[in-house]
Structure formats: structure tokens, C-alpha cells
């Protein structure tokens, strides 16, 4: 698999560490349902068969966490963007 790192260009996926679902958001501190929200954030996953967004860390490159859109059935790689940025064409 080849990942088009937004900073380094197209690289073999072995340069990266993939770690987790990028569709879940850490709940804001202090909200009343914090425990349930935290359980959802840490444990529950839609686990789609198809397009998905994941966090990849370019460990042997720029050390940036990036979002990779990837199809979990075909392994096709779609859009890629940096952590902290909105998805291309989407509002934050």
C-alpha cells in the first residue's frame, strides 16, 4: 500500500504507524455525560466495510499524524490531510 503523505509525497505504508479511527472525536472535558462519551470515544467503532478515515503517523518521515481515507475492502487510498486541518472541501 502507498500513502500520499501531504508533506512527503507518495510513500510505502511501512513508513507509517496506523493507529485508530479518525471519525471519533475526544469528548470535551467536563461535559455531563463524560464517562459514556469517553467509552464511546475509546471503545466503540463503526468499523465500516468500505471507505473509512484513519489516523496514520509518518514515523519514518515527517512525524506528522495524518488522516487517510481508505477503503477497507479494496485498500484503495483516497484523500489525505494533516491532523488539525479540516478535510479538503469540508468545514472544520
Amino acid at each position: 500500500m502507498r500513502i500520499p503523505c501531504p508533506f512527503c509525497g507518495l510513500r510505502g505504508h511501512e513508513e507509517f504507524v496506523v493507529d485508530g479511527d479518525a471519525t471519533v472525536t475526544r469528548p470535551a472535558p467536563g461535559r455531563p455525560d463524560a464517562p459514556t462519551a469517553a467509552v464511546r470515544f475509546v471503545y466503540l467503532r463503526d468499523n465500516p466495510a468500505g471507505w473509512h478515515r484513519e489516523w496514520w503517523f509518518h514515523a519514518f518521515g515527517c512525524e506528522r499524524w495524518i488522516v487517510v481515507e481508505r477503503d477497507t475492502v479494496t485498500h484503495a487510498v483516497g484523500r489525505v490531510w494533516s491532523a488539525g486541518d479540516p478535510a479538503p472541501g469540508e468545514d472544520r
Binding site: M1, H13, E14, V18, A49, H52, E54, R70, T74, H75
Partner: peptide
Amino acid sequence: YNSYAQRGNLP
């Protein structure tokens, strides 16, 4: 990485 493809990669 998450996968339903029943195949992996070379590394």
C-alpha cells in the same frame, strides 16, 4: 490497518 480484504501486504 482495518481491512476486510482477506489479504495483506508485503512488509
